[in-house]
């Protein structure tokens, strides 16, 4: 079981994975109005799994915008370490956030379950739904 730092969220969260295998910039690569990634994939109600984060200080407002427009993902899982901008956006939007889970072999549509235990959050992959 893979565990990371529990930054935002609690309890148990489940959803289908949408995987981005590079460092994502929320400004420019995520459209909060449609809930879509730059490549057209929808992240609304999904578990967004990304390798890492990069980009502008306005990113926090883009993440908050996902909540504002009703397109928030169920959780964001970051393989590497997250930055203050994405973290502050997730706190503002109350989007569950886990980072430092290490390399994750997961593909789009796989069912991911996240269980929070104090300062850690552990992931279970349940295969495609």
């Amino acid at each position: 079981m893979l565990c990371g730092r529990a930054l935002v969220g609690q309890g148990v969260i489940e959803g289908d994975a949408v995987v981005v295998n590079h460092r994502l910039s929320f400004l420019g690569e995520v459209d909060p109005k449609t809930g879509k990634l730059y490549d057209g994939r929808m992240i609304k109600d999904k578990v967004l799994v990304i390798r890492g984060v990069r980009g502008s200080t306005v990113g926090a407002y883009v993440i908050y915008g996902l909540r504002y427009y009703g397109n928030a993902p169920r959780a964001i899982v970051v393989m590497e370490e997250v930055d203050p901008i994405v973290l502050s956006g997730c706190v503002m939007a109350n989007i569950p956030l886990v980072d430092k889970v290490g390399h994750l072999e997961v593909s789009d549509g796989e069912r991911v379950s996240i269980e929070y235990k104090e300062r850690r959050a552990c992931l279970t992959l349940r295969g495609p739904t």
Binding site: T57, V58, Y61, Y64, Y68
Partner: peptide, 16 residues
């Protein structure tokens, strides 16, 4: 505070 222009923070920033 930075991020004060409506052109930069848009509707979500205003709402927050």
């Amino acid at each position: 505070a930075s991020g004060v222009s409506y052109g930069t923070i848009g509707e979500p920033g205003l709402h927050w």
